[in-house]
Design a protein around this nucleic acid. Structure first.
Lengths: 137, 137
DNA sequence: ATCTTATTGTTTGATATTCAAGTTGTATTA
DNA sequence: TAATACAACTTGAATATCAAACAATAAGAT
């Protein structure tokens, strides 16, 4: 029982990853840039540390990633008076547009997934995910 | 509605990835080695091409990954008479053990996730995933 | 106030991951 | 047998990542 559910979950994650990778490769973003963009798009301004935490990497890594996002003009660093050590990262217009586009792909995938489900199943699925997310992650 | 479900899904995938990464980092496998092991553990024997397809990478990549798995004694190549171009990859005892251990972590995570659900919800969740997997990926 | 400690972000050096393109050896087809 | 296709490997390059060392700044202790 648990065994079978585990396998369905792994298959699910796998499918999502492959899909995500192929979408990203078709854009002018690298995988890590896309991941950073996903996070940055959800926040007005973010410092390096919290970006790194959200992404599950070190700040050394985010420094490099943001360097590249900045070079490609998707994001820029802003300094702040409160704490002059901190860099706040904000998306540029180009960055916001790229985020919106990427987010749109996610919505399309979701729509494709739920198209095989009934109204009730969709609601139930969402409830279940919410519960799991709150308690597990 | 779709918007919220999308966000729950992204959160879910994110949580899984972080969890997976931290588990892998605590082992003596690298991420790509672990991914290969996950696939190889499900098959008795596999050639490079199908391993690459399952992982969504090129055979150039799997050559390197299997090289390392072989060096660490998790897997070995076997040649076959039918087609002498082909290498069949099989797990060693050590590799099978590592796979079982890793799979166990997956089961533990699944158990943790479903512990917040009722019997009915678990069944429903599994049905839903199965449907989505079949139709979407 | 000044000295110490903690924190943020960057840099550096190393390893891992991946791909595209080219190569080798083997099979299949014309 | 010659031409073509295919499996795996190699090479060279770009990207991803970390740990450790570092610089600048902030916060706390005396």
């Amino acid at each position: 029982m648990i065994e079978e559910l585990t396998n369905e979950l792994l298959f699910f994650f796998n499918g999502f990853s492959s899909w995500e990778n192929s979408i990203v490769r078709a854009s002018d973003l690298t995988i890590s840039e896309a991941h950073a963009l996903e996070v940055l798009g959800e926040h007005e301004k973010m410092n390096m540390k919290s970006l790194a935490q959200k992404l599950g990497v070190t700040t050394g890594t985010t420094t490099v990633t943001v360097d590249r996002l900045e070079k490609k003009n998707f994001a820029k660093r802003e300094s702040t008076q409160e704490d002059r050590r901190v860099n706040l990262i904000v998306l540029t217009e180009k960055g916001k547009k790229a985020f919106a586009e990427h987010h749109n792909y996610h919505i399309q995938l979701t729509e494709q997934m739920v198209s095989v489900l009934s109204e009730d199943e969709i609601r139930q699925f969402q409830d279940t995910l919410k519960k799991i997310n709150m308690e597990t992650f």
